[in-house]
Design a protein around this nucleic acid. Structure first.
Lengths: 140, 140
DNA sequence: GCATATCCGACGAAATCACTCGGATATCGA
DNA sequence: TCGATATCCGAGTGATTTCGTCGGATATGC
């Protein structure tokens, strides 16, 4: 999907191209790309020979950003959401000790996503040992 | 849900009790507990004054076991499943470099779940600093 | 034998996910 | 200026999953 990181630097890529490469319906990609544009991850140029390109170099794009853009705030349960805005605490919030489990899980997920950038996912030639530093650490 | 860890040592607890405490429909709990029994996490005694109890002390029950029992093999995407059995690789398996991302995420989740036991979730009096060792480590 | 339980299987409503459709608007090249 | 090629936009559909229901069979203690 977001493997248009591959095209970075080669000018805008049309959805028709990407659809062909990824074997996904163009109309569907259209929808996805809207979210990406809204958060400023990709820029679009309209008209003939237009298309989309990354707004920043792939190395600087955390996968956590991408996933958040595509699937909304990342939360294993709604009582443990990334976004304080959407964190609706369940009615049991007082009893429920399980919450800390979900928070822990969420942090783990965010950490994993944050530790990888788009650049890590564009088909590398020899990815035997991971290029960047794929350790667990927290988001700022 | 699995807060019948609270009752550990006090004999079997009926679903009616638990339903009342947790404010969940008894019929629903019934369904859940089936999965838990199948994997041997709880034992049941039928008849009057029967009910369910934990098969092992709460400290020895990893949350990863519980979640796996309740929600099946843990996998953010089906191409990155815990259980090799259910790991159906998507048709793009050749192209798809994203897989390693999901595997990374899955490991992070499993690690987080594995680092917590049921005992960590039964309402502790003063849980300020976590009792066991809630670090990130891998499942064997 | 009767009240209290677990067992079992199928069913139903609501939400989510992946995807579609139709058409308006912008831009480049000839 | 025209037309081909794009993005833009918003509503709509179909399958799957999730949470929960219902009815009744079976086992056990008093």
């Amino acid at each position: 999907m977001v493997q248009l990181g591959r095209h970075y630097g080669t000018g805008p890529a049309s959805l028709a191209e990407i659809a062909a490469e990824e074997d996904l319906p163009r109309a569907y990609l259209e929808q996805l790309v809207v979210s990406l544009r809204e958060v400023g991850l990709v820029t679009s140029t309209r008209g003939a020979h237009g298309g989309y390109e990354l707004a920043r170099p792939p190395e600087t794009i955390r996968m956590s950003e991408v996933l958040r853009a595509l699937e909304g705030p990342i939360a294993p349960m709604l009582c443990a959401s990334d976004d304080p805005e959407h964190a609706t605490l369940c009615d049991r919030s007082s009893y429920c000790t399980v919450n800390i489990l979900w928070v822990r899980v969420r942090d783990a997920v965010v950490g994993a996503l944050y530790s990888m950038t788009l650049a890590d996912l564009v088909p590398p030639r020899v990815p035997a040992v991971s290029p960047s530093s794929p350790r667990h650490y927290r988001e700022p």
